[in-house]
Design a binder for these strands. Structure first.
Length: 761
DNA sequence: CTAGGGTTAG
């Protein structure tokens, strides 16, 4: 790629001097003369009924193929066809003929050729043809720029714009629109604003194509208000203007507002096109509104877009997001032609389902299904792209499927997509979630550029692995690198401090967040601080903070207190917190089980039945204790006391012998009453066969001696199992990683990365 | 010129 003067990207083009040479070109009176090349050509050659010899494309192509001499105007429909078919190879045949007949000296034809190659995405040839043009005009310059913008080389487009100004050509409104689009891709507000200023100065900011481009520029730079302003300024709003505005709302998370624009558009009598409809459907995805989505779907059928692929993709994705897996699959299977986007939507949709899944069984099923889809995609002949890789790596994170994740890592290297920052971040996250902090940080260091999310992901990774110092050091590095932390970054930083019991540091960061970065604390920040006090047994301070916090505590905050009070034996405060928890009537089954266990250990049977009653009334789902381990390409799952498993007998025996062995190291099994499933009222289950023990035992039996063990568990680990695994890691010398429903535990040599969470177990 | 698919915490 051509190297650019940095001034261009920084938005320091000397526009004023250049434009002053041709000030009148922007006067409104001249607007009507800015007819684009496309249009004038179309009028003459394609739709031109005035043209007696309206040429049939086939006829012209066969003449050209046979090497007959044709008039220069004969080329236009053929070249147009190449654009429509997006076929650079066909264009090359025509191009050869043009050269042979010497028609390349014809300005009209050769300029058209630039346009054809640019539209077909072959920028190397487009540039060569452009360089050999007998004469350059604003049309050829603009065609070239359009090509660069479309082939993801916005910097080059701006560079060409600069060349054009230097050459003394002056831009039309259409040219400015293209440059503005290049600014959008680069997120270069500065240059965009300069162009905006000039369009105001020359009073063409109400031009439709400039307004449309301004609208999407401001939207992509995160300023929805400016985008809407630009839209409102447009004198003659067309479908594109409306669509750009609706998209802007969606991109900035304001789905409802986008829908309002859509209804307004309809009431103005403007008919949406396929672009509008897909954009509205993505609003529905944001709102998870199947209702509106279905209506838009019928509208699109009514308007004749039933078979439109983007629309079908959007609807399929909407189904997945709303959890209608079967409907989505039906649509997927019934689609004749599908694109990579279809595959990607399918995989990304499963990642969503995994994320939102109520129970881990369905999460796990979506995950494995997504892996299958990915395999099918690889066999289909299509090549996965950066979207595919980011989604599938996220799937691996959720499944703790390190083996698959590593294979995909290799694939991202081979295909070159690892250089994408989102893919790189997803990879770091995958290694984090699989418990391999070393590989995560290696992947992070190897990234050539990082986003805010990359930094945050890595900080969170260190925090989850109990590497507080590294987390805080990285936070410093991030600030030194000039990256501004966000709300989530601070959640990770605070949780790192909380784990290490670093009260002063945590409070310092909390102040820094509010004062230096003007980030309003949210519940998660308070949760970290309260968790910290609870770990240290400083329950009074935890309660004091809960009382004065803003926003007011939710059930999650109270559940931290309940758990803390229970393990620190402060039942008085515990019951107070429990009552608050009950008042809020959370639907979270796990929270209730916590509560249940607290009453159980206090022997307060009346309260036990009270809680059980509420659980029934609230129709809370039962908790399934369930673990899985993935060994090579296979996944093995275990239920507690699971006897159904083919290897069950061996595994159970092995668990028994492991318990005996760790007893000699000092392990004492807690005879506590740990309820995991409200249905099994009388069987206060014996912890010996909690699912993770079976999964670990199975892993120990079926992997090489020193190999790490990685297990996923659907519930929070109980205290006894946590203690047991600590001893087990010493006994076996293995690294044991368990991801439970709340956090990551990495057991090495008798200690756990979660720091035992100071009593929250 | 406008559309569909991606990454972070608790």
């Amino acid at each position: 790629m051509a190297s650019l003067p940095s001034v261009a990207v920084n938005g320091n083009l000397q526009l004023d001097q250049e434009f002053r040479k041709h000030p009148t070109s922007f006067l409104p009176s001249e607007r009507s003369t800015n007819v684009s090349y496309q249009k004038s050509h179309t009028v003459i050659n394609l739709n031109g009924s005035s043209e007696p010899k309206s040429l049939d494309f086939r006829e012209a192509l066969s003449m050209i193929r046979e090497g007959e001499n044709v008039e220069s105007t004969y080329y236009a429909p053929v070249l147009q066809e190449c654009i429509d078919k997006n076929s650079a190879s066909e264009a090359k045949i025509v191009h050869a003929h043009i050269i042979k007949t010497g028609t390349h000296q014809d300005l009209f034809v050769s300029t058209f050729l630039v346009n054809v190659y640019a539209k077909c995405g072959n920028m190397e040839i487009a540039r060569k043809v452009f360089d050999n043009l007998p004469k350059r005009n604003v049309i050829s310059w603009t065609s070239l720029m359009t090509g660069y913008v479309h082939s993801s080389q916005p910097e080059v487009a701006i560079h060409v714009f600069q060349e054009m100004l230097e050459a003394g050509a002056y831009p039309t409104n259409y040219t400015l629109g293209i440059v503005l689009n290049a600014c959008s891709s680069l997120q270069s507000v500065n240059l965009g604003k300069q162009l905006h200023a000039y369009s105001i100065k020359y009073q063409i900011d109400f031009d439709t194509s400039i307004g449309n481009s301004l609208c999407s520029l401001y939207s992509k730079c995160g300023s929805l208000e400016s985008a809407v302003k630009a839209f409102k300024k447009i004198e003659e709003k067309n479908v594109i203007s409306w669509t750009a505005t609706i998209t802007a709302c969606g991109d900035n998370g304001e789905a409802v507002r986008g829908l309002k624009f859509f209804t307004e558009m309809l009431s103005e009598g403007i008919e949406p096109n396929e672009y509008t409809l897909t954009s509205v459907l993505s609003l529905c995805c944001l709102m998870l509104s199947l209702d509106v989505g279905t209506q838009v779907h019928s509208l699109s059928i009514k308007l004749g877009y039933e078979l439109n692929l983007p629309i079908r993709n959007s609807i399929m994705y909407l189904y997945l997001k709303c959890g209608l897996i079967n409907e989505a699959r039906e649509l997927f299977n019934g689609m004749g032609a599908i694109s990579l986007v279809t595959w990607n939507a399918m995989i990304a949709g499963h990642a969503q389902i995994m994320d939102l899944a109520e129970d881990d069984l369905s999460a796990y099923q979506s995950g494995t299904e997504a892996l299958n889809i990915f395999l099918k995609l690889n066999r289909s002949g299509l090549k996965p792209d950066l979207f595919t890789f980011s989604s599938i790596l996220t799937i691996c994170s959720g499944l703790v499927a390190l083996h698959q994740g590593e294979q995909i890592h290799a694939q991202t290297i081979k295909s070159g997509f690892l250089s994408d920052r989102v893919v790189g971040t997803a990879l770091v996250n995958m290694y984090n979630k699989c418990g391999s902090i070393e590989k995560a940080s290696k992947a992070f260091v190897e990234m050539s550029t990082r986003t805010l999310i990359s930094w945050t992901t890595m900080i969170a990774g260190f925090a989850q692995h109990g590497k507080t110092q590294q987390a805080l050091q990285l936070f410093e590095d991030m600030r030194i690198a000039g990256v501004r932390p966000n709300q989530i970054t601070f959640v990770s930083v605070l949780s790192a401090c909380s784990q290490a019991g670093m009260v002063n540091e945590a409070l310092g960061f909390f102040e820094m967040m509010k004062k230096d970065y003007r980030i309003k604390p949210v519940l998660d920040h308070f949760a970290c601080l309260i968790d910290m006090y609870v770990r240290l047994g400083r329950l009074e301070e935890a309660f004091a903070l809960v009382k004065k916090m803003d926003p007011a505590p939710n059930e999650f905050i109270w559940s931290i207190l309940v758990a803390g009070c229970r393990s620190h034996g402060n039942l008085e405060l515990g019951f107070y917190a429990a009552e608050k928890l009950l008042e809020l009537k959370p639907k979270d089954t796990e929270t209730y089980v916590f509560l249940l266990n607290m009453y159980l250990s206090a022997g307060r049977w009346k309260d036990v039945s009270k809680v059980r009653k509420i659980m029934k009334e609230e129709k809370l789902g039962k908790l399934r204790d369930w673990s899985w381990i993935s060994i090579k390409d296979k996944v093995f799952s275990f239920k507690p006391n699971d006897k159904s498993h083919p290897y069950s007998a061996d595994t159970h025996k092995f668990v028994e012998s492991l318990i005996d062995q760790v007893k000699s190291l000092g392990y004492e099994s807690l005879e506590s009453l740990e309820v995991t499933d409200e249905d099994e009222e009388q069987t206060l289950s014996y912890t010996a066969y909690h699912s993770e023990r079976l999964a670990i035992a199975f892993g120990l039996l079926n992997t090489p001696n020193a190999a790490p063990i990685r297990v996923v568990k659907s519930l929070i680990m109980c205290r006894d199992c946590h203690n047991f695994v600590k001893f087990l890691s010493t006994l076996t010398g293995r690294e044991i990683v368990i991801r439970d429903s709340k956090r990551l535990h990495k057991f090495v040599n008798g200690t756990c990365s979660c720091g035992d969470f100071g009593g929250r177990l």
